[in-house]
Amino acid sequence: MTLSVQDLRVYYRTLRGEVKALDGVSFELADGEILGLAGESGCGKTTLGKSLIRMDGRMKHVGGRVELDGEELPIGDTVKMNPFRFTEVSIIPQYSMSAMNPTRKIGRMVRELLDSRGVTVDTEELHRRLDLVELDRDVLKRYPMELSGGMKQRMVMVISTLLNPSLLIADEITSALDVSTQKAVVTTLKGFRDLGFVKSMIFITHDISLTNQLADTIMVMYAGKLAEKAPSDAVVNRPRHPYTQLLISSLPEVGVRYADKKLTGIPGNPPSLLDPPVGCRFQDRCPLAFDKCREEPPVVEVEKDHYVACWKA
């Protein structure tokens, strides 16, 4: 087993109190598994991604533990976490277009980054991977602004996976791309996994149909909690949680994204995470809600590998 997350809680400190962005999430990720993480904006999926590699100054690790390859990740301690970054856990950020220092030639930046981590550059391997993503080896002698958007994206993908991390987090990396480029990115990521550059992957996205093409398992989150987690095929074709069902049915066709808009099929808004409601967090918008929903639904394995947090499931 690569990754095991137990009851993870991460809150944001704000002047008005703590925003419970991630409020008790547990899941496991096997070797070679790609997990698609889906949900509306603010459901906690990006928070989860960040928590696993580097929390920003306002985030606070409140509870729960994370194990990677049997070793505990000190996610709340930014200094102790450092040895794990890049080598064990790595990330392809949302902002690939601006992720590289604009005033350094790319090759030099990579070398300086690796030097700072005490690793020497394996030039041959680097070249091999550039060939793999169809980047000219010359890009190493260029400045980021000399590359096109797609080239920058591929370059960042190569850099992030250079040290063969156990876990790769891909955070909304396709949201700014057109459909054909999205496909290419998805194919490349699959290739990285198949070639063993990364052991397992969490693919965070708005686009549930794209997730389906890549991920082995899909996890749907709602308001800081896990709603449903199952093999992709089960989530798309036999969703059990009312939220997932609405999510899937509101997707008219493959490739259509629901982006940041609130779901047309689901009236209402996600609850405030400053002071979330007791019980199921979806109850106010749920067409099936009944008295029992005032109690918090446990995550139940309804069939093999299919977990749902709903009293009606």
Partner: peptide, 25 residues
């Protein structure tokens, strides 16, 4: 706070390197 600084920090680059880049830029 620029993206490239965040990226370097996420990849575990030491403060020294990030500050050096930031200073130069």
């Amino acid at each position: 706070e620029a993206d490239y600084s965040n990226y370097l920090a996420a990849l575990g680059a030491p403060h020294r390197l990030i500050r050096r880049y930031a200073f130069r830029n």
